[in-house]
């Protein structure tokens, strides 16, 4: 994630916006704000000036725990050799429908 809070200044908040109903919130960037209420207002002014969203989440950047890029291969490795988790792994006999 992004940097830490400013020393003696306003902390950093990561911003997530739901573009419209039916879609999930996505990360759009970050803002600085002294508290959650102002973080929401700042996020509205910075990221939704053109009706880009119907809902906003703000999360203190320090509250996010992220997987480490250094160990990304090992971390995601268990999924790499399980091709049978994808439907395309299976052969469907000729003429079978609705499968």
């Amino acid at each position: 994630m992004s940097g830490q809070s400013e020393p003696g200044g306003w902390p950093l908040w990561e911003v997530f916006v739901r573009p419209r109903r039916g879609l999930s919130h996505s990360h759009v960037g970050s803002v600085h704000a002294p508290d959650a209420a102002l973080a929401l207002r700042n996020a509205r002014d910075v990221f939704t000036r053109r009706q880009e969203g119907v809902s906003i989440w703000v999360v203190p950047a320090t509250a996010i725990t992220a997987s480490s890029p250094d160990e990304k291969d090992a971390f995601f490795d268990p999924a790499a050799d399980k091709v049978y988790r994808h439907p395309t792994f299976y052969e469907v006999p000729e003429g079978v429908a609705h499968l």
């Binding site: 940097g3 400013e6 200044g9 950093l12 960037g29």
Partner: peptide, 12 residues
């Protein structure tokens, strides 16, 4: 500024 901060520098 937010993009720059992802590189580990403070906006301030």
């Amino acid at each position: 500024y937010a993009a720059a901060e992802t590189l580990g520098i403070d906006r301030a």
